[in-house]
Computed example of a mutant assay.
Amino acid sequence: MAGTRRRGEELEATILDAAWAEIMENGYPRLTMEGVAARARTGKQVIYRRWPDRAHLAIAAIRHTLGPLVSEVPQTGSLRGDLLSVLRRMADRGRQYRPDLFYGLLAEAPDSDTGFGTVLPGVIRAILQNAVARGELAHADLPPRVVSLPADLLRYEGLRNAHRWGQDAAEAEIEQLLADILDDVFLPLVLALAGPPDAPMDVSP
């Protein structure tokens, strides 16, 4: 008996599962639409109608397999706690990537509209706005490059020291890296630019 033709979400899930399997088994540099199509038992043009290139396909496969990086803005009760929560999620996600996938997407995705690297700045801006509401900051009107800084620094560390992203990396080492990014760089910069709101006024003659 002939099999039922797959359509819609079922077909997309099959393709994304196949793409993730190809990435994990063969690496991102060897990822091709032809290889994914063969594994998914579908046509190459079926894939191209949904994803115009392998960067789009790979990012869709990541989201399908691993879920969203941040499903909601954290609410730990403090600016540092919220930021640390997000950076921990980013580090955990990075540890599930093959190094070649991380490097490949950084090289290819910025030239496309995949959304790669654009989620965290929006989350961080929301975190800053929540800090304003709690009275930790005077305002959240910071330049985009400042808002994206903690995520950019963590990606840079991933490129410079790939072992930090590996499954065998020590938790204490990762925690220290995140603390260094926040306490030595980002939070001092944010406080210098945006707060705190109750800083005493200089009334010296």
Score class of each variant (00 low, 15 high):
residue 128 L to F: 13
residue 136 E to Q: 10
residue 160 R to E: 12
residue 153 L to H: 12
residue 170 A to G: 04
residue 132 V to M: 07
residue 168 D to T: 11
residue 138 A to I: 09
residue 151 A to Y: 00
residue 151 A to F: 00
residue 171 E to W: 02
residue 143 P to K: 10
residue 172 A to Y: 03
residue 127 I to F: 01
residue 175 E to R: 01
residue 170 A to Y: 04
residue 178 L to E: 12
residue 144 P to Y: 12
residue 141 D to Q: 15
residue 166 G to F: 03
residue 154 L to S: 06
residue 161 N to K: 05
residue 139 H to F: 06
residue 126 A to Y: 03
residue 142 L to S: 04
residue 130 N to T: 11
residue 155 R to N: 14
residue 148 S to N: 12
residue 150 P to E: 13
residue 140 A to Y: 10
residue 130 N to R: 14
residue 147 V to E: 14
residue 167 Q to A: 15
residue 124 I to K: 05
residue 136 E to H: 02
residue 178 L to A: 02
residue 167 Q to T: 15
residue 165 W to L: 08
residue 139 H to M: 09
residue 134 R to Q: 04
residue 127 I to V: 15
residue 159 L to I: 14
residue 142 L to Y: 09
residue 123 V to L: 06
residue 178 L to D: 11
residue 174 I to T: 13
residue 148 S to F: 04
residue 136 E to V: 05
residue 125 R to T: 15
residue 161 N to V: 06
residue 158 G to N: 08
residue 162 A to M: 08
residue 177 L to R: 05
residue 150 P to F: 03
residue 137 L to V: 11
residue 158 G to V: 07
residue 145 R to W: 10
residue 128 L to S: 09
residue 141 D to W: 04
residue 138 A to C: 04
residue 163 H to W: 09
residue 158 G to Q: 08
residue 129 Q to F: 03
residue 130 N to P: 01
residue 126 A to L: 03
residue 132 V to Y: 06
residue 134 R to H: 01
residue 165 W to Q: 09
residue 125 R to E: 15
residue 143 P to Y: 08
residue 153 L to A: 14
residue 141 D to I: 12
residue 132 V to H: 06
residue 131 A to M: 05
residue 153 L to T: 14
residue 173 E to W: 01
residue 162 A to I: 13
residue 172 A to L: 05
residue 150 P to T: 12
residue 127 I to S: 02
residue 127 I to L: 02
residue 141 D to F: 07
residue 171 E to A: 14
residue 143 P to M: 08
residue 172 A to S: 13
residue 136 E to P: 00
residue 158 G to D: 14
residue 155 R to S: 12
residue 163 H to G: 04
residue 155 R to A: 12
residue 165 W to F: 07
residue 177 L to E: 09
residue 174 I to W: 00
residue 178 L to Q: 10
residue 172 A to M: 06
residue 126 A to Q: 14
residue 164 R to G: 02
residue 165 W to S: 08
residue 170 A to I: 02
residue 169 A to T: 15
residue 145 R to F: 12
residue 130 N to V: 02
residue 141 D to S: 14
residue 134 R to A: 04
residue 152 D to T: 12
residue 164 R to H: 10
residue 172 A to W: 06
residue 147 V to Y: 11
residue 132 V to F: 03
residue 123 V to M: 07
residue 170 A to W: 02
